[in-house]
Amino acid sequence: MSSTVQPRGATKIALSVHSWLVYIFFFAPIFVLIVFSFSDGRNVGRWGGFTLEWYQGFFDHNQIQSAVWVSIRVALLSTVISVVLGTLAALALERFKFRGRQVFDALLYLPIIIPDVTMAVMMLLFFSEFFELLDAWFNLDWQKGFGSITISHIAFNISFVSVVVRARLAGMSEVLEEAALDLYATRWKTFRYVTFPQIMPGVAAGALLALTESLDDVVVTQFAAGPGATTLPVFVFGLIRRGVTPLVNATSVLMLTASVFLVALSLAFQQFSGRGGRSLLRGGREAVSTPNNQMKKEIYQ
C-alpha cells in the first residue's frame, strides 16, 4: 500500500507536467539567447547559420573591453576591502558586546534590504554634494568614475560579506576559541590558527557573493558611474535600451558564463573545504539561502 502523501494518478501527472513547464519557463529564454548568440545575421528571431563573429565583436569593441576591465577592477577591489571590513564586523558582532552594537547591527542590515533605486539615488546625491564640496574647499575637480563606483559597491558588499561570515561564526562553537586560549595561544594566534580556519568557508562564500553582486549591479553603478568610467552591465544596459543586437547576445552569454562559473566555483569550494559529509547541494543551498537577501537585492535591480 503506498502512502497517501505521495501524489498519485492524475494528480501526480498534473504536478509533474506542471514542474516540467516551470523548468521550460526557467530555461527557454536562456537557451534561446545562447543559441542566437551563434546565429549569423542581424535578425535575432531567425537562425542564420553558425558564426562566432559576435564573440569576435565583443573582443574587438573598445568600449566593451574597457568596461570589462573597469568591472573586473571594481569587483576585485571592492571584494577585497569588503571582505576585510565585513569579516571584522562579523567578528565584532558575534563575539563581542560593545556600545553601539545594536545601531551597528541595524546599519549593517540596511544596505541589503534597501531598494536598489533608493541606494542609487543616495549615491547620486552623495557624490554630487561631495564633489561640490571638494571643488569648493580644495579646488579639486574630481569626477564620478572608478572611485565612486568602487565606494558604492563596498557600501553594499560589506553587508553581504558580514551576513555570510556571521552565519558561519554563529555555527562555530566559542569553546574552540576557549580551548585555544587554554592551550597557551594568544588572542592573535587563536584567531590565526582556530577562528580563521573555521570561518574560512564563510569568508570565501562571502567573497564570491560580493564578487557576484559587484559584477551584477546595474542600478547603483549607473548612478555612481560617470564620464570617467563605467562597468560592463551599465554599458550593456545602455546598449539594450537602444535595441537587441547579436553583439549584446554574445556579451550576455559571456556574462552568463561568468556568473555560472562563479557559482560553480563557490559550490566546489564549499564542497572541497572539508565540511565532512555535506552534500554538494546542502553547500549550495547554504550559499544561496544564507543571505536570503541576495534574492531581494537582485530583484530590486
Binding site: V175, L176, E178, A179, L181, D182, Y184, T186
Partner: peptide, 20 residues
C-alpha cells in the same frame, strides 16, 4: 591571569577538538 598564562589545562565538556 589570562588563560594562556596559567599552568592549567582543561578537558572541555564536548572536548572542543579542533575539527580542522
Amino acid at each position: 591571569l589570562p588563560p594562556n598564562k596559567r599552568p592549567v589545562n582543561t578537558v572541555f565538556q564536548d572536548y572542543a577538538l579542533f575539527p580542522h
